[in-house]
Design a protein around this nucleic acid. Structure first.
Lengths: 230, 230
DNA sequence: CCACGGATGCGAGCAGTGCTCTCGTCCACG
DNA sequence: CGTGGACGAGAGCACTGCTCGCATCCGTGG
């Protein structure tokens, strides 16, 4: 990741790889993942399709690259929103992060679909994409951790032993002191956020909810209360 | 919908349409929506691809048919689970419905993706698919209505006027007496269920949650408490 | 400095796709 | 019984992902 390319060839390779991803990203934004074509990307860059295969072994590999980029982009947006609020104002931080998630998803619907929609058939989450994928989730989990430090606990009263063990990897990736109850609550809230945004971005709320902005705000406030945020 | 076919031609047409959908459904279950091929369906039925186009104008039309079927299938499963429990036992009804949703999704991942994953590019929700799509959601909304009748209110304390107006079409489709607060809560819980199942079925929980069954049960119990179910 | 090997781009080509068109055929209705 | 419309077959077009053999050019070891 931090390899400084040296030879002209390596520089050219890195630049062309980036150019391919750029072109692919703009195509993705226009026509969606299903219609993304390696040949079209090649045409856009003024080369022949087989040349692209020197950089991405397969169409799915290209898509995988876009998925990693999308996760990072989303993670950055959510992190920035969270970081823009005073750390002690938990409710405001939550609101900012949640709205950042929704705003990003609405302005990048196809990228969002890549992240949280139907999985790409040939996609296997590699190590680095996994950490990128967790960035947005992590913001929420850390929020729950901070809430718990502030003496606020929004989780269930009792957590079965099996579930305590089950969510251990999650809480440990944030803060070993994060209680199972808070972890369960945070994961449920995260699921609600992703679920809501998916339903909205994928058009499932179309005829039912008249004012999506007002409705999302109401849901976010409700979830903030569930998290017992100040 | 209730047209009794009469002439032999109409019968044959209805049968072949069903046969095409059957073959397409089995293909979908095996290779997923992206790889579903009209030609392969035609081969499977021993005819030529152009003949299939007499029945479905386009590949997306075929997929749309599958989407409608999937929504109905899922709706039926959730309705049956809910109906199998004494009406007064709200918590048990909720648990049954929620687990029916997850079980169906896990055993029909590609169909679930059709319903709640990335939307099919050429898909436009027609009137009948819309009503099919709402079946599972409606079960939960009615549950919230029954809870409210029983004097239980799990919604937010105050609902802004804009949001009250916004969710009016939803509550009216269930029971005009359903309060905005209960509607918001029900929609948030629905989003949490869909979000959780999507994350799980689409593989996003893979490395984090060790015991998906225990975790889903814990989340469902938490949501039941949020709904203030007995 | 130069020769060699590997990385790169190109073009042709294969197998497959969605979809269209034309052409016989066969059934239903007048 | 005749005719118009629905139907299935087949060829074909434009496109796709991907492979392969060929030149070319760059970086490195001698």
């Amino acid at each position: 990741m931090t390899d400084a390319p040296q030879t002209a060839r390596e520089v050219a390779r890195a630049e062309l790889t980036a150019a391919i991803l750029d072109s692919a990203r703009s195509q993705l934004a226009q026509v969606g993942p299903a219609a993304l074509s390696v040949r079209a990307v090649a045409r856009d860059l003024g080369m022949v399709s087989s040349a692209v295969y020197r950089y991405f072994a397969t169409r799915d590999a290209l898509l995988t690259g876009l998925i990693a980029e999308a996760h990072d982009d989303l993670g950055e947006a959510v992190e920035a929103a969270d970081a823009g609020v005073r750390r002690g104002d938990l409710r405001k931080r939550f609101r900012a992060a949640a709205h950042a998630l929704r705003d990003w998803a609405r302005s990048h619907p196809h990228e969002y679909a890549l992240c949280y929609g139907s999985p790409v058939p040939g996609y296997a989450g590699s190590a680095e994409t996994t950490t990128s994928a967790a960035r947005a989730t992590l913001v929420l989990l850390q929020l729950a951790g901070d809430a718990e430090l502030a003496g606020r606990r929004g989780g269930p009263a009792r957590v079965p032993a099996a579930e305590k063990a089950s969510v251990k990897p999650v809480s440990e990736s944030v803060d070993p002191a994060l209680s199972p109850a808070s972890t369960v609550r945070a994961l449920a809230v995260w699921a609600a956020l992703v679920g809501h945004v998916s339903l909205e971005v994928f058009g499932q709320l179309e005829g039912s909810v008249l004012d999506p902005d007002a409705h999302f705000a109401a849901v976010v406030d409700l979830l903030a209360a569930d998290l017992d945020l100040a």
